[in-house]
Amino acid sequence: MRHTIFEINFEKEITSSTIPLIAFGAALNIVVGQTAQLIKLPLYLDSVGTILIACLVGPVAGMITGAFANLTLGFFFNYAFIFFIPVTLVIGLYSGIVARLGAFKKWYTTLLAGVVQGLLAALTSAPIAAFMFGGVTMGGTDFLVLYFRAIGKSVVESVFLQGLAADPVDKSLSFLVVYILLSRIPRPILLRLPGYGNA
């Protein structure tokens, strides 16, 4: 019986040892986002857990972490997060792939990977924010949407341009946070993780 790459990676990454890590990553996404609000940072930082688990376990685990973080956020805090699950899938997949390519070994490659991630996130979230929410997401970045609408851009263009302006900063900082977290993990703990070679 033939299996797809996704199925093979799924069985390899989602085991009884990694399930609690995925749940931890999903919870970390939510809590880091709230920490950013607590110390009044004008950023989301709501994908740190996804990136961390994608790096430490693999891309499929990263995708599942992101999806469950948004599901949990959706069920308990705000249903709107459920609609952004496709964005978290892209973040998890991309982070896992670049981690395997060695992006988290040096700070500048991490930063570069974060900027590209921001562009990808902007591309994925723009149609959802435009068609589901009419370009409004109740974040501080709505002022950017307002500005782009005022200079004559369409809803999709405005949301995409807003994403281009805000997401690369947010995602590169998230990647750097993960880079620093990885450098602080004691070696005995790191060696117990499937993706220890990525750190």
Partner: peptide
């Protein structure tokens, strides 16, 4: 961010491995 996130993440990372 780091004095808040590093102890939080390390504690629960180790705990998650034990749970696994």
């Amino acid at each position: 961010l780091f004095p808040l996130l590093v102890p939080l993440s390390l504690t629960y990372l180790a705990e998650s491995l034990d749970r696994g």
